[in-house]
Nucleic acid binder design. Structure first.
Lengths: 325, 325
DNA sequence: ACAGTATTATCACATTTGTGAATAATCAAA
DNA sequence: TTTGATTATTCACAAATGTGATAATACTGT
């Protein structure tokens, strides 16, 4: 029982010790050979063995490169306040993960103590929250802006996201205790006005920033559809009204007009008017081929403050904008 | 806009390129200097710069060392089938994380395609699932064995855990759509029999393994209490009956007798009888000072198949067992 | 205990790397 | 354009590392 495996483990320990002395503590192989009690030559050989055995893990952290020219173009063309466009690095990392990282970094620049921010969920927002690194507690109120209780089939739980971000910011989460969409507009209104949700809806007026993803309204790409938030009928209605995408509960067409009002009425969450009235800065994060049209629509609504995307997507949005004016 | 930051970024890119050539591709500094077009001396200096700037991240992966002697003692003393006891490494890593890793590894040895397994949540189980590394899809049914919908204040979401493990095993999650505990035993029974949960409860009979954490019943340590699953009154009842710990919905005293039956009756989940009858192999993972007594109680119930813990805890359990026979 | 195998030590030498100091090139701002 | 300041080059040498060949030692299984 102590035979074969035990020897291997002991060896791995030795390799780890030697590797740590060398790579982490920066000792010379000669000094390590003294401490460990083997030849210096052997230390050299142990080090290569350590790397072969996977005891040493070396990773290179590449900077995220932004393209400020294209960002300026986007800002000017659509009259938005800020744009962050990062270059895609095909071989190195997942663009979605990078989008999350750079969105998290951007968000961090915006927030300051005691702020109130809201989140409109989506996969990019999830990636942002995951990439967000905790540091100083900032006492920030993090509001869930749309209901979502039944995330059984979804790949993320909205409450959990709100909680995680609040935790990382050293703040407080505020949930909406309701489903995303109801059958009846009256029920939706009732839930918005329900005492359990009163807190969040009152706080919305204090919101300085909203972190938002953009949703597609095609079955194949819509996470909201896949998560069961929207059903076939809902999508059909939206498509009929020429919706090209949405942010949480409201939708817009390619010209940036708000459409699908009757869907919005049935949704438990912040209305698009609230965002316009309160002049909240909306930070929008999205990327990918199937997000080009939705992003263009969103930019034209004049509700976007900051757009964060990758170069590929940004270029497509610009050229699509030129085609469809 | 392209000035200062852009230079820095360019520099970081260079550092990353050089570091990758050197550390990852294993090129010599001389050959790198040719490619990049700088002096060889400069390459040497760039490499140290890269490490100082945090461009190069080196980590040493230490083997987890197990103590098979103590494991044998535990197995013999309590008549359980397997025990994995790992040595604590004070300086190197969090023991909780290590517990998760070794539990995940052990679990991986047990499972094979098309199995059905159940999970009884807890912090150690969360850490296990987080540490579990996805590889071949095994088509495993992962059952949530206890209800839990209102995890607002909890640091983990049970559904999410079930989903994540199922995903990592390439299988299917089965949820219990109910709260953990009800006020009324009849409501609990009703929920167990409810069509929405029928699926899970039927599948329990196919369960080969259960991954379980052990809960404390003291306010300060009980995650279930902190998560609002159990309230003051519940804990009081359990303490009155000399409960020392629990696994999901059932509790036991220091002698391994099942207690708190009326609490168990109000809980929506698998009963302790089901586990005994079906002869399911229960893999228990827990560690820490405040888990010593609960672990001892659990071992004495004869429902534990495998115990995974650290050396410190294992020793305490053994000596406590000698004191209290 | 012993043969056979695997591992490490020993030694010697070639490569590779680190570093100081002086010089040259580059760059930003006046 | 000139001037400081920063940054890289050049060169030379010391220090550290990699590696082959052989001898010594440790380990395994019978």
């Amino acid at each position: 029982m102590v035979s074969k495996k035990s020897v291997t483990t002991k060896r791995l320990e030795l390799l780890a010790d030697v590797a740590e002395s060398y790579y982490i503590q920066g000792k010379t192989q000669a000094s390590i050979s003294d401490e460990v009690g083997v030849t210096r030559s052997m230390v050299s050989r142990l080090l290569t063995e350590a790397r072969n055995e996977g005891v040493v893990e070396i990773s290179i952290i590449r900077p995220i490169i932004t393209d400020d020219q294209i960002a300026d173009q986007i800002m000017q063309r659509f009259g938005i306040r800020n744009a962050v466009i990062f270059e895609n690095k095909p071989q190195h990392a997942s663009s979605n993960k990078t989008l999350g990282q750079i969105t998290a970094t951007t968000l961090k620049k915006y927030i300051s103590p005691n702020m109130t921010i809201g989140i409109i969920f989506g996969k990019a927002v999830r990636d942002t929250i995951r990439a967000f690194e905790k540091d100083k507690p900032l006492n920030i109120k993090v509001l869930q802006l749309f209901g979502a209780v039944d995330s059984t089939s979804s790949s993320y739980d909205v409450r959990e996201l709100v909680r995680e971000l609040a935790n990382k910011m050293g703040g407080t989460p505020y949930y909406i205790n309701a489903p995303f969409i109801m059958k009846n507009p009256d029920t939706a209104r009732e839930l918005r006005e329900n005492i359990a949700n009163k807190g969040v809806f009152n706080l919305i007026h204090d919101c300085q920033y909203i972190l938002a993803g953009i949703g597609s309204i095609h079955k194949q790409h819509s996470t909201f559809y896949q998560a069961g938030f929207l059903n076939d009928e809902d999508l059909r209605i939206l498509q009929q009204q020429n919706a090209v995408g949405g942010m949480g509960g409201y939708h817009f067409d390619i010209h940036g007009n708000i459409v699908g009002q009757e869907i919005e009425n049935r949704i438990v969450g912040i209305t698009h008017e609230a965002i316009l009235n309160n002049n909240i800065a909306t930070i929008v994060t999205a990327r990918g081929e199937n997000k080009v049209t939705p992003i263009l629509g969103a930019l034209r609504t004049n509700m976007v403050h900051t757009l964060i995307t990758d170069l590929e997507t940004a270029k497509s949005v610009l050229s699509l904008d030129e085609t469809l004016h």
